[in-house]
Amino acid sequence: MDTIREQQRAFQHDLLTDLQDMLGSREITAILIADQYGRPALEVVDSQSRTRRVFVHLAFLWFYWGDERDERISCLRLPTAADRIEGAAREGWREGEQGELGIDLMKILDAHRS
């Protein structure tokens, strides 16, 4: 089990490193970190010097920086993802705390069983 988790973290790290490089070339400050749970993330600074963390959701292959619908984008098209995150950072992160994206896959399975 640890090997799978390590492979997942390595994949997340690689995706975030590629995103970090793209954002850096666009003069967006992004620092690769590990959060308190060991998840890799990018701390991205917006135009008002506020920081949000960008994570990778592996089940859906998303980059996400909150729990709102417009705060996630596919990892599969990295330039498009970088465009979107750059735009959000230049515009400024939304007010309030950063929401955590929580998707209960069991609810999705239960919906299909009914």
Rank of each mutant, 00 (worst) to 15 (best):
residue 79 P to Y: 01
residue 68 E to C: 10
residue 90 R to G: 04
residue 98 Q to L: 07
residue 23 L to K: 06
residue 47 S to I: 06
residue 100 E to G: 02
residue 49 S to P: 01
residue 94 R to V: 05
residue 76 L to H: 07
residue 30 A to N: 00
residue 80 T to W: 02
residue 63 F to Y: 09
residue 26 R to C: 06
residue 82 A to S: 09
residue 4 I to N: 14
residue 73 I to H: 06
residue 55 F to K: 02
residue 28 I to R: 07
residue 2 D to M: 13
residue 52 R to D: 05
residue 90 R to D: 00
residue 96 G to A: 08
residue 108 I to M: 09
residue 77 R to Y: 11
residue 4 I to P: 10
residue 86 E to V: 00
residue 37 Y to W: 14
residue 112 H to E: 09
residue 28 I to W: 08
residue 65 W to F: 04
residue 81 A to I: 04
residue 68 E to I: 11
residue 68 E to H: 15
residue 35 D to S: 08
residue 7 Q to V: 02
residue 70 D to T: 14
residue 1 M to G: 10
residue 76 L to K: 15
residue 46 D to I: 10
residue 62 W to E: 02
residue 51 T to F: 08
residue 23 L to W: 10
residue 104 D to V: 10
residue 25 S to C: 12
residue 108 I to P: 02
residue 106 M to R: 14
residue 102 G to S: 10
residue 96 G to P: 05
residue 7 Q to R: 11
residue 13 H to M: 10
residue 4 I to L: 15
residue 43 E to W: 06
residue 65 W to A: 02
residue 96 G to N: 03
residue 82 A to I: 04
residue 46 D to M: 13
residue 14 D to S: 14
residue 22 M to S: 11
residue 42 L to F: 05
residue 34 A to I: 00
residue 67 D to Q: 08
residue 43 E to H: 08
residue 3 T to N: 10
residue 3 T to R: 14
residue 4 I to Y: 15
residue 101 L to W: 12
residue 10 A to I: 13
residue 7 Q to P: 00
residue 100 E to A: 08
residue 105 L to W: 14
residue 2 D to L: 11
residue 75 C to M: 09
residue 6 E to D: 15
residue 93 W to Y: 07
residue 85 I to K: 00
residue 48 Q to I: 00
residue 87 G to T: 01
residue 24 G to K: 03
residue 56 V to Y: 02
residue 71 E to P: 02
residue 86 E to N: 01
residue 28 I to D: 09
residue 70 D to R: 15
residue 106 M to K: 13
residue 59 A to D: 15
residue 59 A to T: 09
residue 48 Q to M: 07
residue 62 W to Y: 15
residue 20 Q to C: 07
residue 101 L to Q: 01
residue 45 V to A: 12
residue 62 W to P: 13
residue 48 Q to P: 00
residue 46 D to K: 12
residue 20 Q to E: 05
residue 75 C to V: 09
residue 10 A to C: 07
residue 70 D to K: 11
residue 93 W to A: 07
residue 22 M to T: 13
residue 59 A to K: 13
residue 33 I to M: 13
residue 19 L to P: 02
residue 60 F to Q: 10
residue 20 Q to P: 06
residue 79 P to L: 03
residue 32 L to F: 04
residue 58 L to C: 10
residue 1 M to I: 00
residue 63 F to E: 02
residue 21 D to T: 00
residue 80 T to M: 03
residue 109 L to G: 03
residue 11 F to I: 04
residue 53 R to Y: 03
residue 74 S to H: 03
residue 70 D to F: 12
residue 44 V to L: 03
residue 35 D to L: 05
residue 28 I to A: 02
residue 61 L to M: 11
residue 56 V to T: 04
residue 100 E to M: 09
residue 2 D to K: 06
residue 29 T to E: 07
residue 107 K to V: 13
residue 83 D to R: 14
residue 9 R to W: 06
residue 58 L to V: 13
